[in-house]
Design a protein around this nucleic acid. Structure first.
Length: 261
DNA sequence: ATGGTGGTTCAACCA
């Protein structure tokens, strides 16, 4: 079972690129972030024609997440628990069944948090605290679980081409990195970093200043696997090639292969 | 580089 996460930065602008990607790589499920669409405006037919069931949690103009899956998802959870007043569409979770096996999968779009001297940064940290609390309950379920998405966190120096440029950025603040580290400390595996301990594996390059051409990237899109998911994980990769496409997203897909044996 | 590009929606916000 191949599972992908990709911040597509607008479903309408990425209709062609995402369709091409799905045809070329044929994943069993793909978690999307920043669909920037309401549920009713999502072009579901395009993906249903490719064999996917479309589950969305959108809002107008900004944010929005989705899961496209080749099987019907079960037990769908819309929104991150812990704050009924949070209206931003950033979290969607569901169970995918593969024969006698099942995986719990979340598509998450963690708040950017910039600028750090505004209310946006505490909102990010509060969201991360809620994620940590919810992640603990997921671990207690002892089911293969994957928290996939755009975390907007640069975990380590290795994860940025120019770490100093991010010193005052919410993505690299000690508080952001500590909250991310709390997830890994409690048992979640940052799977790409585990598979590739020594290479950067960037997933995002800014549209500006020729960042892609200079490989001035950062690694902020992550696959966090529960211990039971690590048991069945058989490799992963970052599909950099999509960044060279026409009208690319500023993020690229990241995937993991599961084999239940 | 305090926004140089890009998406959504339509003047401004977000990243």
């Amino acid at each position: 079972m191949k599972i992908v996460t990709w911040n597509i930065n607008g479903i309408k602008a990425r209709l062609s690129g995402l369709s091409t990607y799905l045809k070329e790589t044929s994943p069993d499920a793909i978690c999307l972030q920043e669909i920037k669409s309401i549920d009713e405006g999502f072009p579901r037919e395009v993906f249903e024609d490719l064999g996917y069931t479309v589950t969305t949690h959108g809002q107008k103009g900004f944010n929005g997440v989705a899961i496209l899956s080749k099987t019907q998802p079960e037990d769908i959870q819309v929104g991150l628990p812990g704050d009924d007043d949070d209206v931003q569409a950033r979290y969607l979770e569901a169970t995918l069944v593969d024969g006698s096996n099942a995986v719990r999968l979340a598509s998450l779009y963690l708040p950017n948090g910039n600028p750090i001297d505004t209310e946006k940064f505490p909102y990010k940290l509060g969201w991360m605290a809620r994620l940590n609390a919810h992640a603990r309950t997921l671990l207690n379920g002892e089911m293969p679980t994957i928290l996939a998405g755009d975390y907007n966190v640069i975990p380590q120096l290795l994860d940025a081409k120019r770490p100093k440029a991010w010193t005052n950025d919410a993505l690299f603040q000690p508080e952001s990195r500590s909250a991310f580290r709390k997830l890994t400390n409690e048992g979640w595996t940052d799977y790409v970093r585990t598979c590739q301990p020594d290479t950067p594996e960037y997933t995002f390059w800014d549209y500006q200043a020729g960042a892609w051409q200079k490989d001035n990237g950062i690694r902020i899109d992550h696959l966090l696997l529960s211990p039971q998911a690590v048991d069945v994980a058989q490799g992963c990769s970052v599909d950099r090639f999509t960044r060279s496409w026409e009208k690319p997203s500023d993020h690229v897909p990241v995937w993991v292969e599961l084999n239940f044996g």
